[in-house]
Design a protein around this nucleic acid. Structure first.
Lengths: 186, 186
DNA sequence: CCTTTTATAAAACGTACGTTAGATTATAGA
DNA sequence: TCTATAATCTAACGTACGTTTTATAAAAGG
């Protein structure tokens, strides 16, 4: 599992193919071809096609999620969440493709049940986290359950727009939409 | 193109396979097998695999979208949109799978560029429609652009939850979230 | 009742897939 | 320098794919 330049390059190309053609539509031959290595080299670094796919999700995707969510702490929550989403515009090509592939698996559009279950556990944790972050900032007239749920739904959609649909969202756009939900309105 | 029982059955099974395994992961043999017909029968009713996939999107998916959006007219917009989303819980199995497959194509997770372009045109039209529906109901202190944008983003997420993630959303949940965005707050 | 059309299937064609065997070259440690 | 390990490739194996050919039953029309 030591990092080799070729090994990393294979993952880069694989992520691209899995994204574009799906697991079944991607072939080891095409990947080897684009990497400019022979076909068995892929089996030298990865047990088989499935483990190549799984490693991308289990390691690269969850690393990315961890890094992103670790910055979820600040006083001003509108700024916090705006930045949280806005930063996705600046992901590297590779990171964005990994993220996109992860969402594909999360929606059960690719990958298998095992990966999906790992993601469901993650989702549950991150939802609790959002509750803890947001609840203290809400006025007593607001129902925290509803606000947090609605915010999470909006956030997930914004993330999907940037990462999956490859759109650029400006900081203003993001802040405006988050503010619709989080602004106090007594 | 006349409706034959077998022809419809093939589409039913195909939609299921395309959903679960993607275009490339689905095989004509598997489909024929599950339909309990011989393999060439699929070529009797459809030119090839691609046209089978395309027909599901171009005809069944867009029929579904049309039927759904045609009911977008009412005085009370919160009720209107609540009902609009809530009704998705009651889609037939086939309709839900068609819808799910359509979203998969919309997110460029399957299908080809041609189908995606048809969807982008549709999206543009439906966005304008939402603006016309919502704008008259907003107070002058609200920026219609932002409210409509945010609402559409929330709606798309709710639809995705029901159709793609296969969740049941209660009428109350839906109304609560839509109200967070649409409630007047002067 | 014969003929045309519609509906069906068995078998095969060529191709491409995931994967492995076996051999060869480069690298590095003693 | 010799040897062991790591990195690489050519070639092949068996399988499964999309699609077609060809033939045969069933249905319909006159």
């Amino acid at each position: 599992m030591a990092p080799s330049e070729l090994r990393e390059r294979i993952k880069e190309v694989a992520v691209d193919h899995f994204n574009t053609n799906g697991y079944h539509g991607s072939t080891i031959r095409q990947i080897a071809n684009e990497v400019n290595c022979s076909l068995p080299m892929i089996y030298y670094y990865f047990k088989n096609k499935k483990e190549l796919f799984d490693e991308i999700i289990k390691i690269d995707y969850f690393d990315l999620l961890s890094r992103q969510s670790s910055q979820l702490q600040s006083e001003k929550i509108i700024d916090l969440y705006t930045e949280f989403v806005f930063k996705l515009n600046r992901l590297s090509d590779y990171e964005r493709k990994v993220y996109r592939l992860g969402i594909k698996v999360y929606l059960s559009f690719d990958g298998d049940e095992e990966l999906k279950e790992i993601m469901d556990v993650w989702e549950q944790n991150i939802t609790e986290r959002h509750h803890q972050i947001i609840a203290p900032h809400l006025s007593h007239t607001q129902d925290p359950q509803i606000i947090v749920r609605t915010l999470i739904h909006l956030l997930e959609h914004l993330i999907e727009s940037i990462v999956v649909k490859n759109r650029f969202l400006s900081e203003d756009e993001i802040r405006e939409e988050i503010s619709v939900i989080l602004h106090d309105r007594n």
